[in-house]
Design a protein around this nucleic acid. Structure first.
Lengths: 142, 142
DNA sequence: AGCGTGGTTGCGAATAGTTGCATCTTTGCT
DNA sequence: AGCAAAGATGCAACTATTCGCAACCACGCT
């Protein structure tokens, strides 16, 4: 059993921030909701092409940018030349990417708490560490 | 008074790793050495165009990629749509980038020591934190 | 000095993402 | 329902970066 109307949160946030809700954005949100959580603009485009052939890829990029700026979605560079997006209804998370084998491991954000505190203390800087990709070597490839 | 032949380190590393030293790479290194430390491929290209009009921008990208892979230079995304490069003869450093005013503050790498230890301990991951850009808000824009 | 191998270059085409602009749509107001 | 204003869309042109490939050149060996 899935949550009912999962997209309503995003929709409300979009509306209440002065943006319009359009059919294009609805479809884009649907794809993001139905995806595994690492979706590229091009993937959204091809998922959508059959139902909505005129939806232009630049509209997708602009929608993703808006979701990002509203704090509804996060953009991640996994190092393969294209940016990935996911809605964060399930909380923020971060990636450890192995430069050798390409494996991507997720981790939660608690590990950054001390770093955030140090940046605030020493640099008076309020870091936005909601989605960070850290490159390095995994256990097997170290 | 400048250091004599500052580029010899890079040159030796390039040669001893089985790569060729070419006039193109020499010129590119010269520009990187004479720059402030945040140079884009396009900047290198225009600095060089007069002396060496045929040097193609893809050659610059390839040289930068090689320097990066040899650990001689670091690539940073400062969020303005183009990647910046700098040789790290003077040690690694990191950036705090304000999302509001765009100010970039440098900081040294010691602040990441606890994070690196935690990643190794909890995730068996050997993070390569040689050049990280962290976005957020600076003191004035917080 | 002469030569072969393998790395390198220039070029043009491809890819990911962004931007300007004229034309719509959504939304709040009446 | 009707309207104006703000925001969104589609499109084409543009930017930054990468890639395939044929011609080229650096470097080690003789």
């Amino acid at each position: 059993m899935r949550p009912v109307q999962p997209g309503k949160l995003a929709e409300n946030t979009i509306r209440s921030s002065g943006h319009h809700m359009t059919p294009q954005r609805l479809v884009i949100l649907e794809v993001l909701e139905g995806s595994n959580g690492h979706t590229s603009a091009e993937e959204i485009h091809s998922h959508v092409r059959s139902r909505y052939p005129k939806l232009h890829i630049s509209t997708i990029y602009r929608a993703l940018d808006m979701l990002k700026r509203l704090g509804l979605a996060t953009e991640t560079d996994l190092g393969d030349g294209k940016l990935r997006y996911h809605l964060h209804e399930k909380g923020y998370h971060h990636h450890l990417i192995c430069e050798k084998c390409g494996r991507v491991e997720d981790m939660d954000e608690s590990i950054f708490t001390p770093l955030k505190a140090a940046l605030r203390r020493k640099h008076h800087f309020h870091a936005d560490l909601r989605h960070l990709a850290i490159f390095g070597r995994c256990q097997g490839c170290a």
